[in-house]
Nucleic acid binder design. Structure first.
Lengths: 94, 94
DNA sequence: ATGGACTTGTCAGATTTTGGCTAATTTACT
DNA sequence: AGTAAATTAGCCAAAATCTGACAAGTCCAT
C-alpha cells in the first residue's frame, strides 16, 4: 500500500534484487516479494532494517508502515475520517 | 477506551443492567462486562445493536469503536501522529 | 531453451481471538 | 452483619488468523 510502493521504488533506484534484500532480512525471496506487494505485512524489525539498507530514516518507513495498517483497518468504514480525527484529537491532548 | 466509556455512561443514564444488555446482544454477562471495560472488543454488529438499544446514532458509536481500534494500533508508536495524518490526507483525495 | 528474477499457491505449525463457564468480588439493600 | 444481585476475574478449549517455508509457476532476456 504505502510502504510497499516506497520500498519498491527504493529498491529499484538502488538497483537491488529482491533476493539480496531477502537475504539481509533473513527471509526467503518469495516472502520478500509478498511484502513488497503487500500480500504479507513486514514486521517492525524488518522495516527498521530496510530503512538502514536503503539509507532513509526509520521514521519515514515506519510512518508508511503504520499508515498502511491504519488504512487497512478503516478503509471500508463510513466513519473512517471521523475516527481518525477523533484519535488525532485525543493524541494531541496527551 | 472510547466506546467503553460511552456505553457505560449510556447504560447508567438509562439505568440498565449489564445482564439486560448482554441478553439483548445474546452474550453472557461476563462477556458484556469485559466489553464495557475494554477487555474484549465488541463486534461491529454488537455496536450497531447497542446504538439501537441506547437510541443514539450508529455513527456515533461506530466512530468510537473504530477510533479505539486505531488508537490501540498506534498508541506506542513514535510516528503515530504522522501516520494518522498521512492516512487522512490520503483519504481525502479519494 | 536456458537461466535468473520474481510470483503464485499451498501447507502445517504457531499464535491470537473467541465464547462461555465457574468462581470470586463488590455493591446495595434490609 | 447478612444476603442476594451485579459485576469482575480467571480459565479453558475451539476457532480463526498469522507465519514461515517450500515447490512450482510465469515472465523476460539472452
Amino acid at each position: 500500500m504505502f510502504l510497499e510502493k516506497r520500498i519498491k521504488e527504493l529498491r529499484e533506484k538502488k538497483a537491488l534484487l529482491q533476493r539480496q534484500l531477502a537475504a539481509e532480512l533473513e527471509i526467503d525471496t518469495p516472502m520478500y516479494s509478498k511484502i513488497e506487494r503487500g500480500e504479507r505485512r513486514a514486521k517492525r524489525e524488518q522495516v527498521i532494517k530496510l530503512a538502514e539498507l536503503f539509507q532513509v530514516t526509520e521514521s519515514e518507513l515506519l510512518t508508511l508502515w503504520l499508515a498502511g495498517q491504519v488504512y487497512e483497518l478503516i478503509k471500508n468504514e463510513e466513519t473512517a475520517m471521523k475516527a481518525l480525527q477523533f484519535v488525532e484529537q485525543n493524541l494531541s491532548n496527551k
